[in-house]
Design a protein around this nucleic acid. Structure first.
Lengths: 120, 120
DNA sequence: CACTGACATTGACAACCGTCGATGAGTTGA
DNA sequence: TCAACTCATCGACGGTTGTCAATGTCAGTG
C-alpha cells in the first residue's frame, strides 16, 4: 500500500505564511523592531555554512531527498534533519513526505522576497 | 588642531577586501565549504535584529554618527560599538573617524553582491 | 595641562546554537 | 507479522553570541 503525500511545515512570517517580503527594503527607512525581529529570524536560518550548502544543493536540483544530503554535507542524520527543519520553518525550503522519503525543494519566491528586503 | 580622517576596518572576504560577490549564486550550483563559510560569515552579521535596525538606519541616511544610534536602538554604548564593528568587519558599513566622532555609511555595493549570492 | 566628550576594548555572565548518540514514529517489502 | 529502512525528536554537551559595567584611548577645549 502506498501512502498519500504529506505536506511538511512552514511557519508564519507575515501572518499569512506565504512567501512575500516581510519588511520595508533596507535603505528606504529604518526597520521597526517587529520587522527587524522577523527578518532576523529568516536571515538567521541562512547564517550557517551547513544550511547554506544544504540550500544550495536543494536549489540546484528540482527535488532532493533527505538521504541525499547526509553524504555531501558530511553531517549526521539528526543534524541534517535539524537543518532542514530550520530552513523549512523559515520558509526557504518545503518538504513533502512520500513513502519513506522526504523530498525537499527550494522556495525561490521566498528567497526573492528576502533579496527585496535586502534592498533589491 | 584637527586630526586627519581615519579609515575604519573592513575585513577580507574574497581576498582583496572589495565588495564583489563571494560565491556562486544559490541555485546555480552547490556551494563549496569555503564559499559557504565566507557567505555565512557575512549573512551572520545580518542575523540580528539590532544590527538589522542599525544598518537600516545607516542606509537610510548618507552618514550617521555612532552617537545617533544609541537612542533609537535603545542599547548601551558598548553594545552599539560592538554591532558597528561586526557590520564593518562584514563589509556592510564603513566608518570614518573625524575628530571625536565616527561616521558610518552603508556599503550598498556589498549589499548588492550579497543579494546576487542569494540568487539575484 | 587638566578636563570633558566620543568611542573602543575588556571581562563576565546568561542565553542561544550546532552537533551527535539514542530512541521513537511511520512506511515498505518479504 | 516482522525486519529493515527513512526520518523526526529528545537529551546532553561544548562553543558561540548579545549584553552591559568598568576601563582605556584619543581628540578637542578652556
Amino acid at each position: 500500500m502506498v501512502a498519500e503525500p504529506t505536506e511538511v511545515k512552514a511557519k508564519a512570517l507575515d501572518g499569512s505564511g506565504d512567501a512575500t517580503a516581510c519588511c520595508t527594503p533596507l535603505g528606504e527607512a529604518p526597520l521597526s523592531e517587529v520587522e527587524a525581529a522577523e527578518l532576523a529570524r529568516i536571515i538567521g536560518a541562512l547564517a550557517d555554512p551547513v544550511r547554506l550548502r544544504l540550500l544550495s544543493i536543494v536549489a540546484s536540483s528540482p527535488e532532493v531527498c533527505s538521504c541525499e544530503l547526509e553524504d555531501p554535507l558530511a553531517k549526521s542524520q539528526p543534524t541534517v534533519s535539524h537543518h532542514t527543519k530550520v530552513l523549512a520553518e523559515a520558509g526557504l525550503i518545503s518538504g513533502e513526505k512520500r513513502g519513506r522519503w522526504t523530498w525537499w525543494q527550494a522556495n525561490t519566491a521566498r528567497l526573492a522576497s528576502l533579496r527585496k528586503a535586502l534592498g533589491g
